[in-house]
Structures are given as C-alpha cells and as structure tokens.
Design a protein around this nucleic acid. Structure first.
Lengths: 316, 316
DNA sequence: ATGAAAGCGCTAACAC
DNA sequence: GTGTTAGCGCTTTCAT
C-alpha cells in the first residue's frame, strides 16, 4: 500500500501515510528484500592508494544517490591484485544489488567474470581494458598524459624525470605511453634512470623525488602520474633547497583537491573523478531499474596551467 | 549448520564447508536478518566540512571492521542542524544494527534521543555534551587549544587572530575557550575584530585570512581551529606576499594529512581521529555483542611543533 | 542427535 | 477493487 500502487486515490494515500506516521510504522527492509530479491544497497569497491581520489569517488556516488532509496556500502580491498578471487564472494554475501568498480578493480578480469557469474550488476570507473565487458567511464589517459608532457616540453624542458604510478593500475602504463609519445615527437630521449617507480601516494612521490635529486644530474622538470606524488615531489624539492618552479618544474595528474592547496598551485591535467563517479552510479541505477544504459562515456580531460611549472632557468 | 554450532565434530564441519563451496552456496542474508533481527550492518553518520577529517574517520571504522562480519554503510548528512529530526527515520529504514556518530551529529540531543527510542545502538566521536548519553570518544579540546595558543604566545606573539570553526560544531566553542584561557593567562586582550568566522573548510580559511590581511593592522600569528583552514590561511598569506613563518605564523588543529604535505609543514595539535574511530567502532561492536563497553575514552592530544610558526619578526 | 514445523514481515498472485 | 493466501530462505523450537 505504501509502495506507490497505481489505482489508489491521492486522498487515500495521504491518509495511509498519516496513519503510518502516527503508528511509527516502518516496513521491514529484510522482509521486503527477501521477497523482492533486491536489497537497495550498492557497493563501492576500491583500493586505497590516494585518499583524495577515493574522497572524490565516494562524493560522486553519494551525490547521485541523494534522494534515491539506495544505500552505499563501502568495500575497501587491501590489494585487488592479491585478493581478486575472494572479492565477489564477499559481495554476494553482502547481497548488494550492484557495485561501482574503481581502479584497479575496474580492470580486473577475474572480478569482472565472477561478477557476471554471480549476476551482480556493475558500472566501472577508469578501466583501460575489456571496455565492453561492462559500462565504463573513462578519460583518454594517453592523450591527457601526452598533453601535459607536451606542455612541459613546450616550456623548453628536455631533462625530464617521470614518477610512475602504482604498477598494478593499468592507467600507469597508459600515462607512460602518453609521455613517451610526447618525448619522441620532440625527439627527446627518455633515459631509464629518469623513470622512478611510485605508488600514487604522497610518500612514494616524496621518496622517488628524493632519489631523483640525490643523483648527480638533476632534471629540470618532473612529471608525476598523479597529484599526491607531485606534491610529494614538491616537498622533496624543498628539502633539497630547490625552489619551484625556478629550479625545478613539477606537474601532476588528476586535479585532486591537494593540487589547489599547495603553493605554488600545481599544474596538472584534470580527470573529472567526481563526474565520472556520478555517471557510473547513474549507469548502475539504470541497470537496476531496467532502463537503457550507456555502454561507455569518455569524459573530457583538461590541461590546467597553474604555477608549478615554468621554463627552465637556463631559458628563464 | 554453518553457524558454528557447538556439538559438531571438526571433520563434519570440514565436509559441510567443502560441500557448500562446491555448490557455491551462500546463505541468504535477508532471510537470516529477518529471523535474527540483525543486519550486520553499521552506519557512519557525518556531515561534510573537512574531507581529510572524514577520510580518517572512515579509515578508522573500516580498520576495526576488517575481518569482522559487519559491513559499513556511509550516511552523509547535508546539515545535521537542519535535518536532525529526519536522520533516525532514515537509519531505521536502513535497518542498521548501530551507528558511529561523528560531530556534529554526536552532539545532537534530538538524534541521540530518537536513536534511543528506536533502539539503535551508537558510539560517538568527539562529543562535548551529554557525555553519558552514549559511549564517547573525546579529546580535551579546551586543553589542546590552550596548549597550542600557549605555544604561540610563548614564541612572543601578542597580535593574534583566530579563525573559528563551523558554529554548529560544539568543538568550535571548546577550542575558543582554550584559546581564551591562554590569552587571559598571558594578559593579552582578545579584540573582537581579530575573530574571523570559518566553516572548517580550506575555502573558508582562505576567505577568513584574506579578510584578516586586507585590514590595516596585521596580526603576527593566526590560530586556525583546524588544519584545512590553516592551509587556506597559508594560501592567503602567499597571495599577500607574506612569508610563513617570517611575516606571519599560522597554526592549525587536528594533524590531518594536509598538515604534513604543505610547506612549511604546519604546526598543529594532534587529535587522533583514526584511533578515535577505531575505538568508537569497537564500542559499537561490543554493544552489539553484549560485551562490556567502555563508557568514555579521553584520547591523548599532542602539540606538534613543525615549521609554520616562529617568533614574530620584531623579536627574530 | 536428528528431523519436522512454525514463523520472521512482507509481496504478489489469485480468487472473490 | 478487496481480501486471502502462499511462500521468500532461514533459524529456532519442539517432537521424536
């Protein structure tokens, strides 16, 4: 009766509602779920490399869920790489109607397959492979990385170091490829010792940049594969008494909040994580309600020129 | 049978488990919940002023929940102040076993009362009032604020501005009180125009500090009631060409991640949000499982002296 | 110890 | 339209 049935007059609805309120009646969601086979809960699956990324993600999902009857269950995975086989078991015992998959889970074939077998719907954020396996929200990582590398090269830099992201995330390779395209277009040789590993965390960026600065021939610019690592690199530069961007330029990737609160503000390329999360949630809800679903959205990226990169001093 | 019954031999258990795996059997959680009247889900209720605070909070809850059968449902509230009356209705329709209450919900008498009426268990983070209404995790906000103010005054500052937190959070008043105790002990007069309102956000700190710097007589130090606002104040200082800590000292409150990634690093006073969230979740689980529950834990705070505060230039 | 049966609170199908 | 009933998948109780 409370479920918006078709042939009930508004007046009656109103009275029923009042009576329900008066009796403090709340339908039992388990009984409902049991018979409807629907929990009205969705999950957000993520690993934990960059807090700012996760925050944006979750904000986006919750934004789309406001006013909706769905509740959000957060499911952090220590290491998708290691626990892929167990993830779907967890999900089905949580009885979720569907899940939003953030990287690197969104790229994991084991998870994708088991999800299909378990008939759990999903929508994905930033996958790079198997794009038709499930609805996807992407940016063009290769192009975005190429553009910011182009920009840095355009400033006159030729001695450029790179801090890579987490190797278990496919976007790390994609961004690497974009950088390399820009390098080869400009005829710059990328030396192996100029590539530092990282994990998408502030600490890993700090450590990587310390390594870079501790070595003899210092680059004039650093491309970090996300903003957290870029901010770590800025910290390392300060430790070495280098000023940014005069002594060394640093650029990031993502436009996460941290890029706007540092000084100088970080030049980066925007990935609209919040909007991607909203769109992914929309795709998931559409599936749950048997509406038409977009199979794939490529979201726009945008080079954001701020103050952390400038021409190298020799050209200054 | 799968529920760890007492009189079953290990061998039988093992075989049952194998059979269950082979058939890919998963118990239906709704049927269980229906008859047991227990959902194995807990909620985290928060408002959204400072992302770094929320991240720590959620990390703590999830940390305590790893390996536990409980799932976490996140419940952001736009404005606890405005929607206190509706919160508990939402919760009971979500059928949660219990909730962790972050400020300002943890201080809200309406929510606390309705929770009790609805027999939803809870544990609280950083309440300042009604401390015996439900298990509480606190720090001594007054003492912590007094200590950091003492420190700044001890550096030689006497022209000190304050950026307040969100007025709907009770800790704002508590910290204010701590500052004032330090001021009066040092015989410093606190002028009204030296108190700027804020909302615990970076942007509000930025705006508040711009106001402060735009006025004629500039303070030599700023006490911000959390780190996000302090970092906003640092940004404003840069905009005015002021260097930190030489021209102006800035200190924060919380020791959130952002305080460690700025340059100079932020002098602040640590509130162990992560540990408080773990403890609150522990208190909640203990209640759910009828174990003894600590009624209140006062967590230690700690003054963290970093580089964003120094003696005023006149003394330098 | 083992098995049968009742019932948790609701929805949907079907008769009236 | 309105009232009745079966049954969702499990746990628990009560016979056996």
């Amino acid at each position: 009766m409370l479920n918006d049935e078709p042939h009930v007059s508004p007046a009656v609805k109103q009275r029923v509602r009042e009576a329900a309120d008066a009796l403090d009646y709340h339908p039992n969601v388990f009984a409902q779920a049991l018979v409807r086979r629907k929990s009205n809960m969705i999950g957000l699956i993520y690993e934990n490399p960059s807090p700012s990324y996760v925050v944006e993600l979750q904000r986006g999902v919750l934004e789309r869920l406001t006013g909706e009857r769905y509740k959000l269950v957060v499911i952090p995975i220590r290491s998708v790489q290691e626990h892929a086989g167990e993830v779907v078991g967890m999900l089905r015992s949580a009885a979720l109607d569907g899940v939003v998959l953030a990287p690197p889970a969104s790229d994991n074939p084991i998870i994708l397959n088991q999800l299909k077998d378990a008939r759990i719907l999903c929508a994905r954020i930033a996958p790079t492979r198997l794009l038709d396996a499930a609805p996807s929200n992407l940016i063009d990582d290769v192009a975005a990385a190429r553009e910011i590398a182009d920009y840095v090269i355009g400033l006159g830099h030729r001695e450029i170091a790179i801090i890579r992201g987490d190797p278990t995330h496919a976007s790390t390779e994609a961004r690497m490829l974009g950088y390399m395209q820009a390098f080869s277009k400009a005829d710059i040789e990328l030396r192996l010792e100029r590539i530092e590993p990282g994990l998408f965390t502030f600490d890993s960026g700090l450590a990587a940049a310390r390594d870079i600065f501790a070595r003899g021939d210092r680059p004039t610019a650093i491309l970090a594969q996300n903003d957290d690592m870029a901010v770590g690199a800025m910290m390392a530069a300060r430790e070495f008494g280098l000023s940014i961007p005069d002594d060394v330029s640093v650029v990031g990737f993502d436009d996460s909040e941290v890029s706007r609160i540092t000084w100088p503000r970080l030049t980066t390329v925007r990935q609209p994580v919040f909007e991607m999360a909203i769109a992914a949630t929309e795709m998931l809800i559409a599936q749950l309600e048997d509406r038409d679903v977009m199979a794939r959205i490529t979201h726009p990226h945008e080079l954001l020129i701020r103050e952390s990169a400038a021409p190298p001093r020799s050209l200054g």
